[in-house]
Design a protein around this nucleic acid. Sequence first.
DNA 1: AATCAAATGCAATATTATTGCATTTATAAT
DNA 2: ATTATAAATGCAATAATATTGCATTTGATT
Lengths: 150, 150
Amino acid sequence: MAQTRNKFDFEDLLDKHHLKKTSPRLRVLSMMASKSTATSQPDLESVMNDIDRVTLYRILNAFEEKGIIHKVFDLNGTANYAMCSSNCGEHHHHDEHLHFNCTVCKNVYCLDDLHLPPVSLPEGFKTEGFTLYANGTCPKCTKKAAAKSA
Amino acid sequence: MAQTRNKFDFEDLLDKHHLKKTSPRLRVLSMMASKSTATSQPDLESVMNDIDRVTLYRILNAFEEKGIIHKVFDLNGTANYAMCSSNCGEHHHHDEHLHFNCTVCKNVYCLDDLHLPPVSLPEGFKTEGFTLYANGTCPKCTKKAAAKSA
DNA sequence: AATCAAATGCAATATTATTGCATTTATAAT
DNA sequence: ATTATAAATGCAATAATATTGCATTTGATT
């Protein structure tokens, strides 16, 4: 939800997870936190083109394992990353919210506060987690479209 | 749900969509229809290793466009394909069912007859489609685990 | 300031996906 | 049946994406 965070928040975050506070990591965090949508891996790469690709992979993996960010695949199967809400921990992701993928701007929105209605599965299926995906047009793109057709 | 289909069903299917009845296509169809779960692209490739990789890509794309199969990404972001239920058509996918990804055997189950409860989105989001994902342990793997621990 | 482990960057390699073109194949027309 | 054709396949080349090993650098600790 892109609540404003400052430099020190990120340093604390890394501290908490026993990760060293390096410049690439802090930059990745601040980029992701500055956006209201998830950030695609390609976007990350092009914006942080001075950071080695491999380093980026490793940072993202480390963050994901620690429960700092979560990964979500968009309609094209490309990985997007977003900050986890507070209740995620190491190996305990609770990102059971709605992921909305805009078909126009391709952005992925994490709608955290939208909790899913309970779904009962057929006999024998033991569920660990749910994720609901929706695709369509996001508010921004809906507005733009309306402005054009007016 | 892997209803038994014979050779002629597949030929009809291809006919209906104005696709030529070629041997690679028929093989892909029969493989997918023989399974109760979605088929991962790697699996398809290894089983059909005599079919060119490129051909496989093109077949899958063609089938998807025509609404014969649908693509679903599993937990690892690898593409899986499954036959569409009858109400899918060209550019009109209605695979709004539950995709269950077993964390043990990695299989993706399409639970067609499970319809999602209605979800209301925040102001401004216009939804075209929903997909619900769940992960956990499938009946087979649950059984196996129970047998072992007994 | 010195030490040590962790993280980064680079090179090499592997995997996955795409494009262009020559050849083959299924269909439709003769 | 034979032939013409458009479509589909297979191959080669290339692009894009992901992984591994290792030398170097950096952050934290003493």
